[in-house]
Amino acid sequence: MLTDLYVFADSPVHRARPVVKIAALVVLCTSLFVCEGWTAVTVAGVLVFTGFALAGLGPRHAIVSVRPALWILAAIFAVQLYMTDVVFAGFIVARFVVLILAAALVTLTTRTSEFVDGILSALRFAPAWVPKAQIALAVSLFLRFVPLVRTALDDVREAQRARGLDRNIKAILVPLVVRILKTADEVSQAIYARSFD
């Protein structure tokens, strides 16, 4: 099954419409890059902190979100410290942390299905040249087939392990890709047979 990063809770942040949250995120990110300096970062940091508190998210969620970028942030801090001073180096890293946490706040409080529904309903107002039905088909096929491809990958790895080839990544990828391409042809035949277009 596909799970998203959503953390279950009921709060004003959770209930806000996805469009509103994305708009807020875009405004925050843009203003952080337009007005540089500690003031902007502090204001944004307080806003994000309030958001985390309102949504009932703890420091654990914040740490998990920032951790993947930790090493690269440390490297950037070192380079900036070497080139400028500690204030500017701290500002650059603090800005990244605030940006990542703001984005995490949106991600952790919104279900992927809410976003997808929002996008698909917004597509009704899209101009005629946008292939709405095809976008909807691609998104739903993708969500359906990620677990299937994972199963196929496991099958192929098992089969190649029996041949002693489980460390050979090419011996795993070729059967996987060919199998998925065949599946794709079968699925599109099935869609044609049901007169989807």
């Binding site: 990063l5 993947p68 970028a69 690269i72 950037i76 940006l99 990542i100 946490l101 919104t110 976003f115």
Partner: peptide
């Protein structure tokens, strides 16, 4: 697009808007 919408599909279970706003 689906990574941005919050599915943890990147290696190491990463996902969400944050990965695009980070340095890499």
């Amino acid at each position: 697009a689906l990574v941005a919408l919050g599915l943890p599909l990147l290696a190491g279970g990463r996902g969400g808007f944050g990965v695009f706003l980070g340095p890499s």
